[in-house]
Write a protein that binds this DNA or RNA. Structure first.
Length: 572
DNA sequence: GCCGTTTTCGGCCCGACTGTTTTCAGTCG
């Protein structure tokens, strides 16, 4: 059993929480959190790196001590310090700090003075009015705790980016309509195009903040105003989403935009560079002593520290600052670089629209080609195609291409990978296609070795072209199936196979780290919508967002290629 | 616990808001 990066990160985060409750050196706590964040976002498996004899202490934020702890964890599955610390820190304390507004100090006070041992105890204590009697607490705090314990019980997931857009769009329009407001941007993870967002960070420039604030908190979707000052307000909308709004003067909009776009780790690194140059950088601008030397635009902020503008999608402190400093920032793929969509369904199986309607819609989006990838027979619920029906579809597409102008419909399929790694249709029909998209749709629970072997075997088939949604995860609802992604990528490179980045907002699979790993390992990616209707073709931009977060450039993405070259790449 | 153009010790980002306080601790981002 290989220990995954996410597990290592989880353990370090748990340890950080416990150490914080113990009143440990805050910088030591931060060191664990920083390491956890790096490990979670790192594309390569630390366990495998160790297996290859790598020195983990060379990784940023990981020194000799943490490298040793990771080695122990990988070898034994255990983190002794975590086990020891967990024995000393009562579990209810940890639970209480998950409540907004309760940090280590207040949780400790509640635990000791009121013998709170569970969130139920906490809710009871709040209702009975005992919390307000503690020093440092009052009636207001007590009331908030009562509300927030309630909410914690029905805690929501982070919102998928596409859903967050639905909330953000009308809110931004409302803000733009307020008198005195100049610029409005959604910053934070939304601007970095993360696949999910925990809250919305809205940045507004206006001369008179307090007046604008009064209007903002009256937005009709606001359920609760959690904080309101003259420059900042925290709101909770009716749908449960938290919104932070900041108002800054126009002269500081760029520095504020940079600051509130984050990520936090990226900001800290940039701020450090500013300090090294004798500058002070905060949300109000770039300063040399008392004198402001920039901040109206983000470009000014980056220029002040001697960097080109780093695209928001890269701002995760995953090497982008170093790349920028060396002039090696990737020229990220853009929506307009794409020449076609390589995974679409039609009415023949579970799609809603005809092949012709899909093709015309794709032509209308400026595409040069579009492929039709209906399911194969194993997916009975979708009335998957057997050999005979697929052959008929092939002939129908030939006839369609003969009369369609301006776009080429590619003949393909989304063929199931069976449990033993065979494909669900005979080679005799697969060879009639332009290429194949191959997918796992069942048997998600196989162990890592079996699942990996299944994919490798499938890729041995000479007609295997693209691995669809390679990990099978569904954001907020289904874990990725257990595969050794590095081995799969290695096999893909050897065999000339391509990985899909499925652009469905609940898939985005490969994810950003997977894309980056594919790129590093020399495997190309197809960004595809998996469209089941014409409107789904517009989901492509979410795939592009994720690809950009994965550092992909046009040359890493097969569907930026002109048709003739694409055919060459997909024909193994 | 990490790290190094202030380099192996002594720093580590820092401002806003709230609630309970009469000047600030706690929390958050």
């Amino acid at each position: 059993m290989t220990v995954q990066n996410a597990e290592i990160a989880d353990r370090f985060e748990q340890l950080a929480d416990l150490l914080e409750l113990q009143g440990a050196n805050p910088y030591r706590v931060r060191a664990y959190r920083n390491a956890a964040r790096f490990i979670r976002g790192h594309s390569r498996s630390l366990a495998e790196m160790l297996g290859e004899g790598a020195d983990l202490a060379e990784l940023p934020g990981i020194g000799a001590d943490l490298a040793g702890k990771i080695a122990t964890l990988v070898r034994s599955g255990r983190l002794p310090l975590l086990e020891q610390t967990a024995k000393k820190v009562p579990a209810p304390l940890v639970e209480m700090t998950r409540i907004e507004g309760l940090g280590p100090k207040r949780a400790q006070a509640l635990y000791e003075a009121l013998q709170i041992r569970s969130l139920e105890d906490l809710a009871r204590a709040a209702r009975s009015g005992r919390i307000r009697e503690l020093p440092g607490f009052g009636a207001r705090t007590e009331q908030l705790i009562a509300q927030r314990v309630e909410r914690a019980a029905t805690a929501e997931h982070r919102l998928r980016l596409a859903d967050a857009e639905q909330v953000a769009r009308p809110l931004v329009a409302y803000l733009r309509g307020i008198a005195g407001v100049k610029d409005v941007e959604v910053a934070g993870s939304f601007r970095r195009r993360r696949e999910t967002v925990g809250d919305l960070d809205l940045l507004v420039s206006a001369a008179r903040g307090a007046k604008v604030m009064d209007r903002i908190v009256r937005y009709e979707e606001v359920a609760e105003v959690q904080a309101q000052g003259s420059t900042r307000a925290t709101l909770r909308l009716r749908n449960g989403l938290q919104v932070d709004v900041r108002v800054v003067p126009a002269a500081a909009f760029g520095s504020a935009l940079h600051y509130f776009t984050g990520s936090k780790a990226h900001n800290i690194a940039v701020r450090r560079m500013a300090m090294a140059r004798g500058l002070k950088l905060n949300e109000y601008g770039v300063f040399r002593g008392q004198r402001r030397v920039g901040g109206r635009t983000e470009a000014e902020v980056f220029a002040a520290v001697g960097l080109p503008v780093i695209p928001p999608e890269l701002r995760e402190d995953r090497g982008e600052i170093d790349a920028a400093r060396r002039g090696k920032l990737p020229k990220l793929v853009r929506l307009e670089d794409l020449r076609g969509d390589l995974h679409c369904h039609s009415r023949a199986t579970d799609g809603r629209d005809t092949i012709e309607a899909m093709a015309r819609a794709a032509a209308g989006r400026g595409y040069e080609y579009l492929s039709i990838n209906d399911h194969s027979r194993h997916v009975t619920v979708a009335h998957g195609l057997d050999r005979k029906r697929l052959l008929e579809q092939i002939r129908a597409i030939d006839r369609l291409n003969a009369r369609l102008g301006g776009i080429t419909v590619l003949k393909s399929v989304e063929v199931d990978i069976l449990e033993d790694g065979r494909l669900d249709l005979p080679d005799g029909v697969l060879k009639e296609l332009d290429f194949t998209v191959c997918a796992v749709h069942y048997g998600f629970g196989y162990g890592r070795a079996r699942q990996t072997a299944r994919l490798l075997r499938a890729m041995d088939n000479p007609y295997f072209s693209i691995l669809a949604h390679p990990t099978g995860r569904l954001i907020n609802s289904r874990e990725a199936y257990d595969i050794d992604l590095e081995r799969v990528l290695e096999a893909a490179r050897e065999r000339g196979c391509v990985m899909e980045l499925n652009a469905q907002p609940d898939r985005l699979d490969l994810d950003d780290r997977g894309c980056r790993l594919a790129k590093e390992m020399g495997v190309r990616v197809a960004i595809s919508t998996d469209a089941h209707r014409v409107a789904d073709l517009d989901l492509m931009r979410f795939g592009v967002d994720q690809a950009r977060r994965g550092w992909l450039e046009p040359g890493d993405v097969v569907n930026t290629l002109p048709l003739a070259e694409l055919r060459r790449v997909l024909r193994r």
